[in-house]
Amino acid sequence: MSEGWLSLLQQAFSLLLSFDHDVWSIINISFSVSFAALLITLIPSLALGFVLAFTQFRGRWLVTNLVQTLQSIPTVVIGLLVYLLLTRNGVLGDLKWLFTQKGMILGQMLICAPVLIALSQAAFSSVDRRAWETARTLGVAWPKAVYVLCRELRVPLLLAVIAAFSRILTEVGCSMMVGGNIMNVTRNIPTAIALETSKGDFAQAIALGLVLLILALILNFTLGTLRGKAVPRSH
């Protein structure tokens, strides 16, 4: 059995290193769809997180709890929702986005945004009020003071972005339902792994799994260096 594993791993590596067309097309689709979803949602979500953390308005409580709820909805349910929206008789049926990358991006945006909003709200709520006051009183205009805050919070904000990105990059349910797992069009890493495993073609599944594993290692080690050797210190 161990020999079987070894040869599967060998096959997986050779698929990756020989730039196998199918494997790299799947990787490419996964990253471009998820990057697009992340890029579109990033700024509005951080802005909403900022507003929720710093302002008091009617309905703030409601929005906060809704965002928290959306965060814990399973991705298949979001897939179902987007499917119903995009299906020919659906509200957005005229867009003809079902089983396209655009449809997948829409679904992933709905998964990504609540994570970004909730985590950035938590990050902004944790900031020391004096950071804002100090920047302002030293003469920094408010838009730049927002930037100064984001710099002070770079680690928790980056954590939020990474958490959101890894959630959409690895989700199966929504991509499967909305994208349809069409080779060279909407087949991404998680849907391909699910399919290949069910067919018993483990080499490709392992190759794609390795890509996610390596990515997770890179992201977490980068974050580790970013955090530096900082330890909490009392004053």
Binding site: R130, R136, T137, V140, H235
Partner: peptide, 17 residues
């Protein structure tokens, strides 16, 4: 800006970036 930034305030426990 109005008033902010006119008189510089140094906090009792200063905040350092």
């Amino acid at each position: 800006d109005g008033l902010v930034g006119k008189a510089l305030y140094l906090h009792q426990h200063p905040y350092l970036f």
